[in-house]
Nucleic acid binder design. Structure first.
Lengths: 109, 109
DNA sequence: TACCTATATAACCACATAATCATATAGTCA
DNA sequence: TGACTATATGATTATGTGGTTATATAGGTA
């Protein structure tokens, strides 16, 4: 199964997608969008970052199709393109938890 | 559920883990290790990269507990620490496939 | 028209890091 | 011991990119 997943043609694409997710602010944005669509302004307030920075990350997320964009009136409403990304985060959290647990056991002997 | 996963304390850890996976050569290494433990030399040959480069990436993967290391004789045998990482790749591939399919549909009308 | 708000973008800086080269370390075997 | 192999590491370079500032664009409203 992994061999199918990681064949040479897909390898770069997969790596790119991981790299996109490897920025805390972008994860925070996606986390906000998990609760529903949000405007840029709302995301700026929620994350505490600057408007150009949030906007740029949204552009990146959009370019890689991790979010969708809908312009209504004066605002741009962003939403998660594929909720499956959250499964990723859960698996990663599971990974980390197991790592830490193992580390703890190794420490405690 | 996503809120639990992406709480502020874990956000940086999760992002880091994604960033570790966001390098093609590291994915290629993990892909090789999916078939079983490998020495550094074997990974150098399989990937076509240089020995110091492979060794450095293995050190990174080890530091973040994505691989395990066992020294036997003159060689170091690396193996995957947590097979769950391959689930990540499958999900990402699913994401990408759906994106491309959507793009294709949008193009074909 | 003019003014306000929301969003995007261009220019720039600073930093992280992937890759390379050279070298060091460590184990094996004669 | 010395010679060989395998692996790790330090120094260096080059490149990518996250963040900031300033500005541009566009829609709404008077």
């Amino acid at each position: 199964m992994p061999k199918t997943v990681l064949n040479p043609q897909n390898l770069a694409s997969v790596a790119t997608r991981f790299r996109i997710l490897g920025v805390p602010l972008r994860l925070e944005i996606l986390n906000q969008l998990a609760e529903g669509e949000r405007t840029v302004t709302a995301l700026v307030e929620a994350t505490g970052s600057t408007q150009p920075n949030v906007s740029k990350h949204l552009t990146t997320l959009l370019a890689h199709r991790l979010v969708k964009r809908e312009k209504r009136g004066n605002s741009a409403y962003y939403s998660v393109a594929d909720p499956a990304v959250f499964e990723l985060c859960e698996i990663v959290c599971g990974n980390i938890e197991r790592s830490l647990e193992e580390e703890r056991r190794a420490f405690s002997g």
